Computed example of a mutant assay.
Amino acid sequence: MSNVSIQHVSYQNLGWQSAADLYLPPGFDDTKKYPAIVSTHPIGSCKEQTSGNIYAKALAEAGFVTLAFDASFQGESGGSPRFIEDPSIRTSDIRFAIDYLVTLPYVDQDRIGAIGVCGGGGYTIHAAITDHRIKALVSITGVNFGRLIREGFSEFDPVSALQAMGKQRTAEAQGAERHVIDYLPPSVEEGRANGITDRDVLEATDYYKTARGQT
């Protein structure tokens, strides 16, 4: 049984609060200094799934203070409207997570790393380009969200996708009901039956829409 302890925390983001789980190593002593890691969840995921229950837990067991957070507009974090997936804000979320870690007296601010899974891996790389407080990073099956939108999610017709987005924004600005897209089909079989062939989309469905990705 793991002796990792978890603290539920929140901290200031742009105009809202971010919610996170802080994983503390076994035998944690707040008078000591620990290396710390920010763990960023995949697109459409949350702090409890994958970034937290798998990676943050394992990293804490290895002696790292690890912060798994919910993206802005998602999970328990603030921000409205809900369910936005904005790459620039997702990258900014990582910087705000580091801002929180450096306020903790037991975190060694010169030993902060970052890990990201799937889409979170792409955002983590982008954050590290300009935030040199990140001393080491790992991107696990990192996904380029821009490529995924241009290819897999738009079925290789990005111009039509952009035109549809523009029409929907206009409609919503004029009072139409908000349209929220579930990018993944209910199952791999249904996705293939509807003509989806993109490997990233099908493999993501095989993980996130089955029991193994829910625990």
Rank of each mutant, 00 (worst) to 15 (best):
G78F: 08
F83Y: 15
E61K: 06
I54N: 00
F73L: 08
Y55A: 01
E48L: 04
Q74L: 15
S45K: 06
Q49V: 09
S45W: 06
G75T: 05
V65E: 09
Q49C: 04
G52H: 04
G79N: 13
F64A: 03
E76S: 13
S72V: 10
Q74F: 04
S80H: 11
G44H: 05
T40A: 11
G79E: 12
N53S: 08
G52V: 02
Q74S: 09
A71C: 12
I43T: 15
S51M: 03
G63A: 07
Q49G: 01
A60I: 08
S51A: 15
S45P: 09
K57L: 13
S45N: 12
P87Y: 09
P87T: 11
E85D: 14
T50W: 00
A68H: 04
C46N: 14
T40M: 00
G79M: 14
G78W: 08
T66V: 07
A56D: 05
V65F: 11
N53Q: 05
G79V: 13
P87K: 02
Y55H: 14
L67F: 02
P81A: 09
P81L: 11
S51N: 03
P87L: 10
S45E: 07
C46M: 10
P81N: 10
K47E: 07
N53A: 05
C46P: 04
L59Q: 04
P81D: 09
A62S: 12
F69M: 14
A60P: 10
V65L: 12
I43F: 15
P42N: 03
F83A: 11
F69E: 11
F69S: 13
G78N: 08
P42R: 01
E61D: 09
F73G: 05
P81Y: 11
G44Q: 07
S80I: 09
D70P: 06
H41Q: 07
P42H: 00
S45Y: 05
S45H: 06
I84K: 14
C46R: 08
D86L: 15
G78L: 08
S45I: 07
F73M: 08
T40H: 03
T40V: 15
T66S: 06
V65H: 10
H41K: 02
Y55S: 01
A62L: 12
A56K: 03
N53T: 03
D86C: 14
G78H: 08
F64D: 01
C46Y: 04
K47S: 06
E61M: 02
F64L: 09
G63C: 08
V65Q: 10
E48P: 03
G78P: 07
L59S: 03
R82S: 13
F69L: 15
G63Q: 07
D86W: 15
E85R: 04
A56M: 01
T66Y: 02
T50D: 00
A60V: 09
F83W: 15
V65Y: 10
N53C: 06
G63R: 07
G78T: 06
S80Y: 14
S77H: 12
A71I: 05
T50F: 00
Q49A: 05
E85H: 10
I84N: 13
D70N: 13
